[in-house]
Amino acid sequence: MIPPEIAITVRVNERDYVERVAPRLLLSDFLRHQLGLTGTHVGCEHGVCGACTVLLDGAAVRSCLLLAVQADGARITTVEGLARDGEPLHPVQEAFREMHGLQCGFCTPGVLLSAVELLRDTPHPDDATIRRGLAGNLCRCTGYQNIVRAVRRAAELLDRR
């Protein structure tokens, strides 16, 4: 027996979607496969790696630990929403580019969105705060060195805005 699909309305990157979803559809799969927003990556599906992190009503959350139906009525920002096509990079993105804060780029979207909330909460973080704040995002390429530097740089760039 297949449980019926449920209609949801969700605002993703400032665009409204009305969609039907199976109750068990994970938010990560909904974003990637139903909306085609493949910038949100899936690395573990048990909430540890943080690659699938998105902003849900402004708060960084694991999209693999949420059901799409739970996002009904919510506002979501994915990495594609940080800087729209044709716009310059978001300061956090720009800082990651300047500081070589990414290598393969797979964990990067989750790191960026975590950093956005971190810098909103703590606009001038010291390194310890940055490290604590990003401990929930695993990266296998960078050893975190340039990620920490990039977040520090992002704080400077955000200050200038």
């Binding site: 493949t38 910038g39 949100t40 990495v79 594609e80 940080l82 993105q93 797979f106």
Partner: peptide, 8 residues
């Protein structure tokens, strides 16, 4: 990659 436009 930073814009989420990578293709894995």
């Amino acid at each position: 990659l930073l814009r989420g436009l990578g293709c894995f």
